[in-house]
């Protein structure tokens, strides 16, 4: 039989933790409401952006534009790949961080030479994880790339897009990918990769039967190259912003679920422990009475 005092202390400490998880649950749910709202208001833009770019590219004549350059002269093992990874700033959100990190590990493992891999991590947890990784396959993490995942803004997305485009232009990177958590429905998330650069048009402009669609070419003002050099950064910025908003929403959602589960199990534990406590107390009382009775009988 466990000690009564031990059980009482245990109950008190669980109650303290319950208070914390409950507060975090409330905070996450109020942040989630805000994140949901911003997700809903950006979603039309995000989808329209993708479909418009697609249809614009269908009407684009072949251009020698920098962002389309696949640099096929560089062999696969020498290509420098950059990954933007969106994680959370804090832990305690269930498997959210774990899933993104594991997924990123898998993606990196595909690359032949880890020296050619560079990570641009948004969010504290991910940055710490990749910087302290004691692994033979060490990848470099850009240490000056410091952005938070809290309340994504267009301004931040613009800065990130500019930075990556510049690195691509300077040939410091040959391919740029974006890894973020996609919200399938409110209970289901999945990490996802999107290729940002070079801008590929392989899947676009091809009809279902595999032939190139013959579409009338649109006119571009002032010139296709000029418009594209303006449009692609705009597109990159839009995609990054959309991904940030979506990831933030997922983070809050999974934190809310995790904290709700923690509160429920804390309540269960308190229930079990107080049952044990009452039993132990009752046993102690019974024992005391027996002892008193035994003593009284012995005196007679």
């Amino acid at each position: 039989m466990a000690n009564i005092r031990e059980i009482r202390e245990r109950i008190a400490s669980i109650k303290q933790i319950l208070k914390i998880t409950n507060a975090m649950y409330l905070m996450a749910s109020s942040k989630l409401k805000k994140a949901r709202k911003s997700l809903e208001s950006t979603e039309p833009y995000f989808h329209k952006l993708q479909s418009t770019i697609e249809s614009v590219l269908e009407h684009t004549p072949h251009t020698r534009q920098l962002y389309f350059d696949r640099r096929s002269d560089i062999p696969e093992e020498k290509r420098k790949k950059g990954y933007i990874v969106i994680t959370a700033d804090k832990g305690l959100c269930g498997s959210y961080n774990h899933n993104v990190l594991k997924y990123t590990e898998q993606e990196i493992a595909k690359v032949a030479d880890p020296d050619n891999c560079r990570l641009f991590v948004i969010g504290q947890v991910g940055r710490m994880y990749f910087q302290n990784r004691k692994n033979s396959r060490k990848v470099s993490v850009d240490s000056e790339f410091l952005y938070t995942t809290q309340n994504p803004t267009l301004y931040r997305a613009r800065e990130i897009a500019e930075l990556l485009l510049e690195k691509f232009e300077k040939r410091e990177l040959d391919e740029v990918y974006l890894i973020y958590t996609d919200m399938i429905n409110s209970n289901q998330f999945e990490p996802k990769t999107v290729q940002l650069l070079p801008f590929s048009r392989r899947h676009w402009g091809i009809a279902p039967d595999g032939t190139l669609k013959k579409l009338p070419k649109a006119s571009f003002l002032p010139s296709p190259e000029e418009v594209m050099s303006y449009l692609i950064p705009q597109y990159a910025k839009g995609i990054i912003y959309g991904a940030m908003v979506e990831a933030f929403c997922c983070e809050q959602q999974s934190r809310m679920t995790a904290m709700d589960a923690a509160s429920t199990s804390a309540k269960d534990m308190i229930h079990d422990l107080s049952l044990m406590y009452n039993r132990a107390r009752q046993a102690a009382i019974t024992q005391e009475i027996t002892e008193v009775c035994g003593g009284a009988q012995a005196q007679d």
Binding site: V56, H59, T60, S219, F220, L221, E226, V227, Y230, Q234
Partner: peptide, 13 residues
């Protein structure tokens, strides 16, 4: 740039 119905296909920044 003015655009009326039936304008030719155009993309610009």
């Amino acid at each position: 740039l003015g655009i009326l119905p039936g304008h030719e296909a155009l993309v610009t920044a």
